[in-house]
Design a protein around this nucleic acid. Structure first.
Lengths: 198, 198
DNA sequence: ACCGTACTGGACCGCCGGTCCAGTTGTCCA
DNA sequence: TGGACAACTGGACCGGCGGTCCAGTACGGT
């Protein structure tokens, strides 16, 4: 994927403008009420440019989500404990759940959009694999690993899906919207704790 | 809501035809790939009729979901134990989780559609309350009550959302599609069990 | 200064959910 | 039995969306 050609300066400028514009619009309205044309207008570019850079609506949203999830990703991979490596698995688990709830809370609408978009795949080879988005996959891998360390007897892959999936569901996103983040983080801890402290 | 006027015979016939047609189409493709026009054609009626009877796409999907969830609802409210009243709360909890997984499994695509539609409310009074659909609310109420009986110290409302929400998430629905229902039911039992058997 | 190429933007396309209304049909009452 | 009225019907129609296309533009290496 690494191009030999450098990216042109105006292309960079426009890509950033589009991402910023999307962020601003997203802060005000629900994502399904924002059209690609509005985004283009807000960014001061043509609609064609938006699609040229991001491929599709989903591609744009995904790019934005990647950007937003980068910090957490780095903190988990090489940051200081307890989020990063070095702390005991249980501490890392709790820290990670708290962090995920926080990130999800700051990106509810984006996640709702991506979750829905996951079903709509490219019509290229007839039946494209409708995988979850990369950000989710990363979270899931990390969570599975932590759980497996603590309870190797469980179906940790599935438990990780259960824990993360619940955060993506509409009722939870609604609560997050109402600032119930701390309450959710606490209860998620209770649930995970019940699983882990046997 | 109880009308004094009886429903006309042809209206009943058409309503059933539309629901059946929707079911058949839903069995073959993902719901977002089915247009209202296709449904109308498959049912042998005009598009106007579909909207007249169900109000909107969401209304139609909801009507279908209600129909599908009726059996479980009755079994829980007045059926034999352990699903119905009479069994100890723990048994009822396990039985209910199993039953919900089964119903969700038979209606994944429908639920995905409704979950997404929950965000898009009627543009009537500016900002309509984007509540979850009635079927979900019913399940949530029942599950909350059972949990509260077993662990009154927990935030059972929220735990119920976590358990049910996870089933609505895309990754889980994907697994359900691949026939992993039993695996999911089992793990859900493990999670609930860890919470309840302290 | 020049040239090739990647980038740009807005007209355009097909489709979708939803509306409208003129015509039809079931139902009730006399 | 028949007539009148409301409820139902269906397909033409609408605004708007995501996505495509391509002629024109402007960047950046040489």
């Amino acid at each position: 994927m690494s191009e030999g050609r450098r990216e042109r300066a105006d292309a960079v400028r426009n890509r950033r403008a589009i991402l910023r514009a999307t962020e601003e619009l997203l802060a005000g309205r629900r994502p399904e009420q924002i059209s690609m044309e509005q985004i283009a207008a807000a960014a001061g570019v043509g609609k064609g440019t938006v699609f040229h850079r991001f491929g599709s609506r989903t591609g744009l949203m995904l790019a934005l989500m990647r950007e937003r999830a980068l910090d957490l990703d780095e903190a988990v991979r090489s940051g200081p404990p307890p989020l990063g490596p070095g702390a005991p698995a249980r501490e890392r688990l709790y820290a990670f759940l708290d962090a995920v709830v926080e990130v999800v809370g700051r990106n509810k609408s984006l996640l709702a959009e991506l979750d829905h978009a996951a079903g709509t795949a490219a019509p290229s080879t007839g039946e494209a694999p409708p995988t979850a988005h990369p950000v989710y996959l990363g979270w899931h891998a990390h969570l599975s690993a932590l759980l497996a360390e603590l309870r190797p007897d469980l179906d940790t892959e599935l438990v990780a899906h259960l824990l993360l999936g619940s955060l993506q569901s509409n009722p939870l996103l609604r609560l997050l919207e109402q600032g119930e983040g701390r309450r959710i983080a606490g209860t998620l801890r209770d649930v995970a704790g019940a699983l882990v402290d046997r």
